[in-house]
């Protein structure tokens, strides 16, 4: 079957297999930032935004995104540089192997839109599904809380 949807503003029409999941479709299209960590909706590495909301692409049917908009971490940087979320994570040492980071960035972005003033607890709760085996989470949480503060004081 044919499905049409936008990824990072660009329209794609693709032929998909029955029961194909979005993670596979996106990686086939070349969006390699979307990571394959578990395939069972338990790690968060495959997180993308669907119309602005974080979803797990490994368990989202591609057929279900027909007519919708997807955003991946590729859309968070350009030749000019990185987004403030990415920079904040880098500066705080919150990126070790980096495998969890694309999923983390898109989820943190949604969090900060929903709640521009999150406490540490809010961050931990919202991002609880984004597993990271390297950092022990502390630096990532610090980075996001700090960024929210900077944004509020007009540092954007």
């Amino acid at each position: 079957m044919k499905v049409t949807f936008k990824v990072n503003g660009k329209s794609h029409t693709v032929d998909i297999d029955a029961g194909e999941f979005l993670l596979e479709t996106l990686r086939k299209l070349g969006y390699k930032s979307v990571k394959h960590g578990c395939d069972t909706a338990s790690c968060g590495a495959c997180s993308v935004q669907l119309d602005g909301n974080p979803v797990l692409s490994c368990r989202t049917f591609t057929a279900a995104v027909d007519g919708h908009e997807i955003k991946t971490v590729e859309a968070f940087s350009n030749n000019e540089g990185l987004s403030d979320i990415q920079l904040a994570l880098l500066k705080e040492g919150a990126v070790q192997c980096g495998f969890c980071v694309p999923g983390l960035v898109v989820t943190a972005d949604a969090l900060l839109r929903e709640n521009p003033n999150p406490t540490e607890e809010d961050v931990k709760e919202y991002l609880n599904g984004n597993l990271c085996r390297c950092t022990g989470y502390e630096s990532q949480t610090r980075a996001i809380v700090k960024l929210a503060k900077e944004r509020r004081s007009g540092g954007e």
Partner: peptide, 9 residues
């Protein structure tokens, strides 16, 4: 760091 946070392949 740049490659990792920007999701490069």
């Amino acid at each position: 760091g740049y490659a990792l946070v920007s999701g490069k392949p």
